[in-house]
């Protein structure tokens, strides 16, 4: 479970390895030998077993291939996975592929879910190239939360979209099952999510606050201003100038 990866092949950096006492690599590619490569192969075998066989014609099977060596067959299977999940199919397993693997077959013992990459209500900033780049220090997956929290995000985003035809950008929630994170003091309960305010006008930010206040599952929003709204759900914190921190009840 170290660093919130559970059953999925882990990636890491010197900073995250120092934090968790692990020795994960930032990426794995053909020629790499590492224990996480064997995990990746198991992940690819599982993914292959739950996807249509026509995707895999002419791709060497990884059945029985359980070594730590990232070989040509691993690369070929990874490329199919990347193609099928909308990633750049470069055959290199890094944070983007890890996120997609989490989304595909990641298991949360607590029953948490991963925030979708995109929906009609929001986009997951963590899964964008910009978001992945912003997470380069630790390369952790902060997209896990409770299912009720994810439903609430969708509801908030969809309401906002209906006013402005604009998708909100969901940023960090929690690591899988609330593993301790070096990037936040809280964000461990599965009910805490940051929403970016980049590109929002004052009117749009105000509307988003109104939508949050009206949502029964929103417990609190931390933001740098109330924008003139009166609600005990808004907690003003000056250091929340670039995002809304949304707490949900469940």
């Amino acid at each position: 479970m170290a660093a919130g990866h559970n059953n999925v092949a882990a990636v890491g950096t010197s900073a995250s390895n120092a934090k968790y006492g692990t020795s994960y690599l930032a990426s794995y590619s053909q020629g790499t030998s590492h224990a996480q490569v064997a995990v990746l192969k198991a992940n690819l075998r599982q993914y292959r077993s739950i996807t249509p066989s026509y995707l895999w014609t002419s791709t060497t099977s990884l059945e029985g291939n359980t070594s730590n060596s990232f070989d040509a067959a691993t690369k070929a299977n990874l490329i199919v996975f990347q193609n099928n999940t909308g990633l750049t199919a470069d055959g290199i397993y890094g944070a983007g592929s890890r996120n997609a693997m989490h989304a595909s077959i990641g298991v949360s013992p607590k029953g948490w879910v991963r925030i979708f990459k995109s929906t009609p209500g929001y986009v997951n900033y963590n899964d964008t190239a910009e978001g992945l780049s912003a997470d380069a220090t630790y390369k952790l997956d902060h997209s896990w939360c409770t299912s009720a929290c994810r439903d609430t995000l969708y509801s908030l985003g969809y309401s906002f979209y209906s006013y402005y035809n604009k998708l909100i950008q969901v940023n960090d929630a929690c690591l899988l099952d609330g593993a301790d994170t070096p990037e936040h003091s809280t964000h461990q309960t599965g009910t805490e999510v940051d929403i970016r305010n980049a590109g929002l006008t004052t009117a749009q930010a105000t509307k988003f606050l109104e939508i949050c206040i009206a949502n029964a599952n929103v417990k609190r929003v931390i933001y740098y201003t109330t924008h003139g709204l009166t609600s005990n759900k808004i907690l003003v914190q000056s250091d929340h100038g670039d995002h809304f921190h949304v707490d949900t009840f469940s």
Binding site: H184, S185, T186, Q188, T189
Partner: peptide, 25 residues
Amino acid sequence: VFEDGSEVGLNRAEFIGLSEVERLV
């Protein structure tokens, strides 16, 4: 210091943190 609180520690991996009990899992 984080945007949602702060911790005191020897390093990022070894620290003392605080949390309201009602906000625990």
